[in-house]
């Protein structure tokens, strides 16, 4: 039980520091703060492969958080801030990349696999059904044999 407790505490540690990182910036309104949280959560740290700006202690993440804060305070919209990031870091900066010619495969690739999988599943099922139907109907020779057996049973 104690081990579980320690693990739980370890699990809480980084979360704590994340909150501390976010709260170092000052905002005029709660909505600005909320926007900052949302943007820092959805923008990806370019240096650290798989962490958002909120969760990263990397130098560049710190700089980008500061930039997001600055732009929010200067009255830029979320769209403008995203565009700013895109112009500098490209699609990599987004955890939800924009739908563009280069990202079509990323967005619809899973759908293509779903379609292929459905076609395969459908054809397997259809073949299985056809085989079972073929098995359950007797050809004329079998029919005659069956008839004979039944007659023998009766007599």
């Amino acid at each position: 039980m104690r081990v579980v407790g320690v693990c739980y505490l370890l699990f809480l540690l980084p979360v704590d520091s994340i909150i501390a990182q976010v709260d170092t910036f000052e905002f005029d309104t709660p909505s600005q703060q909320q926007r900052f949280r949302n943007l820092s959560n959805e923008l990806r740290c370019p240096q650290c492969q798989n962490a958002n700006l909120t969760g990263s202690t990397g130098g560049i993440a710190e700089d980008l958080r500061r930039e997001v804060h600055r732009m929010i305070m200067e009255g830029m919209t979320d769209g403008e801030i995203r565009q700013f990031m895109f112009e500098r870091y490209g699609d990599f900066i987004f955890y939800r990349p924009r739908l563009r010619a280069e990202t079509v495969l990323l967005w619809f690739g899973p759908l293509i696999f779903l379609v292929i999988g459905s076609i395969v599943a459908y054809s397997i099922l259809r073949r299985a059904r056809r085989i079972s139907v073929a098995d359950s109907t007797l050809n004329s020779a079998d029919q005659m044999r069956l008839q004979k057996i039944l007659e023998q049973e009766r007599s």
Binding site: P46, Q47, G59, I60, D63, L64, E67, R88, Y89, G90
Partner: peptide, 8 residues
């Protein structure tokens, strides 16, 4: 660095 898209 940010304007250039530098990350380290």
């Amino acid at each position: 660095g940010i304007d250039l898209g530098v990350y380290g």
